[in-house]
Design a protein around this nucleic acid. Structure first.
Lengths: 219, 219, 219, 219
DNA sequence: GATGAATGAGAATTCATTCAT
DNA sequence: AATGAATGAATTCTCATTCAT
């Protein structure tokens, strides 16, 4: 995580650097991302990166943490405080997650890359951490859902969490393919208008329908 | 694809090489995999690799093709000829796929890596091809299922195919985590006994239950 | 030079090999020419090349010798036996040399490549030999020309030989550029009809005019 | 062309590198020249070369440009400003060109290599550029010569330019052979004292005499 | 604290030549 | 005599990291 040097930076410089680093890791996976390129893009000396962070790995950890916080924060901030049923809450979570992705393509790509990062010594820990956090989040939803009776009591919780997690993560792929939104282009050229809320919702209807039938108690 | 030189090799040498190459690509993604390391592991001269294949890309194509053929062949060979309903057929497909994965961890890891290979010019074609083949397979199942009445007629076919594909692909992750089977360790140290069939089946029951409720017509 | 093995070869095979080797060295310089490619083109095993010749260098020597003999033989065979004056003889020599080049582009390219081959240990001897032979030839002409009074007696013979040699060698460049005849294309695709004799002659008129004024005695 | 890194180098290091690179390209053609060898000779890390230049091609372009500028600069600086007739001007141009060659054997060899560089994708552009510049220079002389009446009006200008260019370029070969000056030895061992001006002039007298008779109007 | 040049191990690939069959 | 697989040294180029200024 960032050294004091980084914290003490004038905020515009700090943000210029962060932006450059996010751009790089949004477009390239860990191995392919280049520290030199980040330094060049940020307009700072290559050596400075090592004044701010312990190295590439450390920088990576920082960016992933940042992206995860932003995304979770965005979703949490968008959800209504009062409960709503499980399926409605799940729908909104995924919906706002998708909205975040389309409006923050850099952060979204980064998180996506992390999820599917090839297992190597440098990235394993970070990937695992992110996955654990996501699982915790979903598990919270499921537990509440079972207690409230929205979900069948006999459900294998582990499995349900897995299915919900995988479907919501990969929904991004489905949406971007179906509505021809290229995240890479969005990052690189700022192009591409986000998929309209209604289109997202239509797909979510399908997903929630599948899950409601599949997971709710038989009345 | 392999040159004649490779085909003419004494079979033990050919297999020693193939094994080394699979090991390498099972543990590393395309970029990180090293031709030099493969040669060293196989106990041959670096130059020989280029007597056998046109280059790294060509070798990769060969291995992926090999793995895909083996896996699809294994599944096809294990499925009963007479139809069975959609859900039973889906269950068996995924079941035998999972059995294949646990008993051929190197091939399984390779195919997994291909699926999530970062999009680069060298691998794009191969990845896309594999994904297309898998989608075709699932779509065939779904089409038949709808015609036979096992699946709801109003289903959004695209979405259903997506959901089935994602869940079955990622099931491997779930199983390996739940039953603490590390594919990487299996490749590297040959350790780890495959997850028992019954355990796989138990999870599949959950999955099929979810899908049946979710996708079958309301009676 | 060729081993007995090569001499004993059935003549069609020997010629097939020679043709392939000439093609290769006509299109590539010594370093870039590939023994493997020659073997492949000739349809023989790579190892056989080393049964026929001591190595790349030896093969090169053979080809250059062959080409030089053919070209000198062609010119000698085309020249009338009875003398003619110096300038007429020179004109015919260069004329038939050019005709040879346009009708034997492979051999011509090879000799051209030799002339300008970068000085390296492998080719130095061969290049020097070829140059020496050419110089001897021109010097013979010049000596006769002086004796016969066609050339000024005070002429610096060395210098005259140099000038005549350089101008006639590089004339090939001039002709091929002026009449858009690509030797490389001629070798590779057999394309390109030779420059018409009249066009060659027109250029030779210019050259001989320059030389006559420059080198003949003032009457 | 050089990156800023190279420009910012302490001048002794920069010159040590340039010297090593010139040595290499003076003795070897493009293909045969080795970046590794240059680095070793210059006493720097292989990677540093790529801090200074974009790659082998870029380094080559730099060296050729450098050599051409130096040689043209040297000649221009040595020529008297007021015109003189065509033949006098031509004589001086070639004379100072030859002086440059003998006193800067590395640069001279490099330019010579470029002229006869086997046509490959990496070097084509550079070679063509250099040749074009030389031709433009000679054509300028010839045009002026015709206007001033020093050259015959009926002259085939293309042919005259060709002959003058070829003779002056190859004169270097003639001089080095006649006066036993080995450029390669001069580069490699610093040996060999340049050919004395008088000797050069004696040869030039021969050349100019040939050309004057050959190209000047009959009075 | 900032700089940016230097490093050097490691990557993929080529190819003349050898030698066991 | 013919084969063709094996070799391995050599090539260009990359890049995270270090460290003297």
């Amino acid at each position: 995580m960032p050294k004091a040097t980084f914290q003490n930076l004038p905020s515009d410089k700090r943000e210029r650097f962060t932006a450059a680093a996010l751009d790089e890791f949004a477009v390239h996976d860990y191995r392919t991302a280049s520290v030199s390129r980040i330094a060049r893009m940020a307009g700072i000396a290559k050596g400075s990166v090592y004044q701010y962070f312990d190295g590439k790995q450390d920088l990576y950890l920082y960016l992933v943490t940042l992206a995860a916080e932003r995304k979770f924060g965005f979703i949490d901030g968008s959800l209504p405080a009062d409960a709503g049923g499980f399926f409605e809450r799940f729908r909104l979570t995924v919906f706002h997650g998708a909205r975040f992705d389309f409006t923050h393509p850099r952060l979204a790509r980064l998180l996506y890359n992390v999820t599917y990062e090839p297992t190597g010594p440098e990235t394993r820990a970070v990937s695992a951490q992110l996955k654990a956090a996501s699982y915790r989040y979903v598990r919270g939803l499921v537990d509440t859902g079972i207690r409230s009776g929205d979900l069948r009591a006999e459900l294998d919780v582990d499995f349900a969490v897995f299915a919900l997690y995988q479907l919501s993560v990969s929904l991004r792929d489905y949406l971007s393919e179906r509505f021809a939104f290229s995240f890479v282009d969005a990052v690189r050229h700022g192009s591409g208008s986000p998929v309209p809320d209604d289109d997202i919702m239509a797909v979510l209807d399908e997903l929630v329908e599948l899950l409601r039938r599949g997971l709710a108690p038989t009345t």
